[in-house]
Every structure is written in structure tokens, then in C-alpha cells.
């Protein structure tokens, strides 16, 4: 993971990406009990003007030069598939922009905050996402004011209230 973090920082320094942050189930290790996962999900914001075709090729080429195996849309680091996901909607983009640096294995890594992780999981709303919402609600230290603000702005508050009533 440290290798991936360093690689993303290099790509940021080179201006290939504007920002990056760890998200998905792998980010839960910073806030909740560990949950079984097979991917390390890194969300990125590319440094490209809007309405241009985005290509992740420079990112994959960078990892290949570093000696990592690129398979499809994944980079294998220590047998862990690192998934590079371009921030795909305004909520995810805002989440990456507001990621916080947390200590990990002697370095720091930008990680989505628990409020944004919960909001994204609520927006995605698959069964496993609802399970993540429940975990974050029960175990993470959440800033409820910030959470309600995010959920209100992204029209998720009704879904949240419904789910919360069942927890």
C-alpha cells in the first residue's frame, strides 16, 4: 500500500492527477472493524479540463515502469489489486477533495472521511453498501452535522432516515 501511496503522490507531483484518496471497503480499516475485501480502491481526480476524454493510460504506464503488473484496469501490488477509479460524480469528487491524511505504516495516506464513505455507500446502495453504512454508523466517530449536510445536499437524507430506522 505504501508503494501505491508513493506512486499516486508522484503522479500528483507530475500533474497527471490533481488529488487522490483511499476509499471503498479498504478505507474502512481506518474507522471500523476489518471487513473482507480483495481490492484497494483509490479514487482520483484527473488534472484534465472538463469535457475532455480522460485516459488512465499514463497512470498504468507509470506503474508498469515501476515494475508492477497491470492487469486490465487493476495494478497488482503485493497480490492486492489496486483499483484506480476516477471520481465519477460530484459527491465522490467532493469526497476526494475533502479527504484527510491519516497515518499508515510510517507514512500518511489520504483517506475519505467516514461521513463521505457513508454518503457514497448510501448513494451506491447495494446490499454490501448498506452493510458498510451500518458499520460506519455503529463504529465510526461521525460528525453528525457534517453528515446531515452532505446527505441533504446530495438528496440522500430520506434514504438515510429510512435505513437508520431499521438499525
Amino acid at each position: 500500500m505504501n508503494a501505491a501511496i508513493r506512486a499516486f503522490r508522484e503522479l500528483q507531483a507530475q500533474g497527471v492527477i490533481r488529488a487522490f484518496a483511499l476509499g471503498g471497503a479498504s478505507a474502512l480499516v481506518f474507522y471500523t472493524e476489518p471487513v473482507l475485501t480483495y481490492d484497494l480502491d483509490f479514487f482520483i481526480i484527473l488534472d484534465a479540463p472538463p469535457d475532455t476524454l480522460v485516459s488512465l493510460q499514463p497512470i498504468y504506464e507509470y506503474f508498469t515502469r515501476q515494475g508492477y503488473t497491470v492487469s486490465g484496469e487493476q495494478v497488482l501490488i503485493g497480490d492486492a489489486p489496486v483499483q484506480v477509479l476516477v471520481a465519477y460524480n460530484p459527491l465522490v469528487e467532493e469526497a476526494v477533495q475533502n479527504a484527510i491524511e491519516l497515518p499508515f505504516n510510517g507514512e500518511t495516506v489520504p483517506v475519505l472521511t467516514p461521513e463521505y464513505l457513508l454518503a457514497i455507500a448510501l448513494q451506491t446502495n447495494r446490499h454490501k453498501d448498506r452493510e458498510r453504512v451500518r458499520l460506519l454508523w455503529q463504529q465510526a466517530t461521525l460528525d453528525e452535522g457534517r453528515l446531515v449536510d452532505i446527505l441533504t445536499r446530495y438528496e440522500l437524507i430520506e434514504r438515510w432516515n429510512h435505513l437508520k430506522s431499521q438499525m
Binding site: M1, N2, A3, I5, R6, A7, E10, Y38, I77, G78, D79, A80, P81, N105, G106, E107
Partner: peptide
Amino acid sequence: PTPVWNLDELMKRAKPE
């Protein structure tokens, strides 16, 4: 079979280029 991460490799601190 499902994958198992190589923890040693994953936790390896990156050397500066």
C-alpha cells in the same frame, strides 16, 4: 480460489526513486 494479499509486499515501505 479467491486471492490472498501478500502482506509483506503490501506493507513494504517504498524507496524514493
